[in-house]
Design a protein around this nucleic acid. Structure first.
Lengths: 150, 150
DNA sequence: CTTGCTAACTTAGGCTGCTAAGGTACGAGG
DNA sequence: CCTCGTACCTTAGCAGCCTAAGTTAGCAAG
């Protein structure tokens, strides 16, 4: 059987995401998924591939989301000659303003929850990052390096 | 802006779920979502409402999943006269065997990941449970008790 | 018996995630 | 110029979660 911890994490994340989604939908009419994508671009994700990695999602999912956000006028998508099929992502002014408002709405809520629960933020974050890092390493091993396989 | 920790958790869970899903699909032809539902029933979730709470999902989602699993012959659904509209859930033999095989497949993988990452399983689990508990409390406050509101 | 209340479940429609397969832009070698 | 390899993105179709609104079973009061 799987570890109890793995599905407790699943449940925690599902409920956190649902709570954030409800807040953003009510006050800004935008889903949490869309906000996260915009926030990642604001934080430096400059291509779809980078954005997918940032979110822990696949590229097709990201492709569709970028299309939607561009159509809504929140995201500017462009290509640069000489850089292959890469798309360059940037927020429009409307997008930047939305991210700002949504950010303010969520600000502090999660920290408040953590504080009330008595969990040490820093150590929980450190552990979460270690798990992510180890997951990267495991996938690295599963998909062996092709540049050496010549 | 939201806490970095909240989206690191989101990303970690998304990738863990995807990894587990790939494994189960490859070896047993079943999705991780379906396995989790069956596993919860094996673990004592005896009605759809309980199952939804166990998974951190809404009741309509659970309703559909139960329908699918029943149709596949993995879950037995019945009603008991005198207990309202409640459905009693139980695994069929095929369901129990599938849960068993899938459980073996996942067994130890997550613990191995945690061990390699250097994270202390017990304390990470304790913190995760505290966060879940606090989230319950917060939702309790948000939806005030109606039995007193008379 | 009918009306109203509560608990539990279902239906309808939309959004977003995934996999598998296909398309596009650039650079290197013939 | 043509072809191949690499990197990046898209299309098609399916799975599963959500919200809002509706349904069903039991119970209690008139």
């Amino acid at each position: 059987m799987p570890s109890a911890l793995s599905y407790e994490l699943h449940k925690l994340t599902a409920r956190l995401d649902r709570a954030a989604d409800g807040l953003l939908r009510t006050h800004e009419g935008v889903s949490y998924s869309r906000f996260l994508s915009l926030f990642a671009v604001a934080g430096g994700a400059a291509s779809q591939r980078e954005l997918a990695a940032w979110l822990g999602q696949t590229e097709p999912s990201t492709s569709r989301m970028v299309g939607v956000l561009a159509q809504e006028g929140l995201l500017a998508v462009s290509t640069v000659p000489g850089q292959g099929n890469r798309r360059v992502l940037a927020l429009t002014q409307a997008g930047a303003e939305l991210v700002d408002r949504c950010g303010r709405l969520l600000e502090g809520r999660f920290e408040e929850l953590v504080k009330r629960s008595g969990v040490a933020y820093a150590s929980y974050q450190r552990d979460t990052r270690r798990l992510l890092g180890q997951l990267d390493a495991a996938e690295q091993r599963a998909a062996p390096d092709r540049t050496e396989a010549t």
